[in-house]
Amino acid sequence: MSKQPPGAPPPPPVQRIRLRYTKRGRLRFTSHRDIARVFERALRRAQVPMAFSAGFSPHPKISWVGAAATGVASEAEYVEIALAVVCDPEQVRQALDASLPAGIDLVEAVVAEPGTSLPDRVQASSWLIGLPQVPLQDLEQAVVKFLAATVIEVERMTKNGRRVFDTRSAVVSMRATQGDDCAILRVVVQHVTPAVRPDDVLTGLRSVSDLATPVPPAATRLAQGPLTPEGEVADPLAPDRVAAGHPGATAGATRQVSEVAGVQPPG
């Protein structure tokens, strides 16, 4: 009995497409494993000609970039798929989007610039955190204290057990604003190990101030990508667009804020 199944191996990938998708509304309660399964089935229903791995258990070639935690919404999640047939990325986007549940919406698709790595481009995230029933003043005071500190340690269970880590150094910028029905925290956080998540930032805020959050805060990732010298999060698909000859299409990055379900953009 050979270690490989009989017959020819599956055809190699001829094209890689990078996609930006959202986790909106109720779908924010999906885990990254849920998303992966939903995606695989949607690809089959949409009849996207996926490239498969070889072996007895062939799997479609899908590469995930990070993933917002269960319960966290996002306007900017990324995935790369490998195809066995060259396709128009916009057609793939439309077919797949129609096949995905509302809330997991495919908002962009570009052909990957060969030889580049999408995960390498993702250095920081921009977050919007709604804090219902929190007075703006309290949040502003907590932000001042947070930014004044040099180290703010928090403790959390990670997959390597209980860990204590610093949240302050990962935060690039932080500000409080008033939303329609709740105070809003805008924060840019660098991707470090262990990851500093929005709830870690809130834990840090609570530890340096007497901030209370009576209702569970709702976090939304607005963007993730390269960190610019000005401390902004840039579009990680821009180099692919340039390589594909469509450098102008960055509308998604400015449109996204107003689409965040249930949370108004800061004034």
Binding site: L27, T30, S31, D34, R41, T70, V215, P216
Partner: peptide, 24 residues
Amino acid sequence: LFPRLEKLLPQISKPIQYVGGELN
């Protein structure tokens, strides 16, 4: 009851199982 349930979901494990909206 979803608006009331939604406030509880961040506090529990595997919240997606209570959300509904399955395909079909």
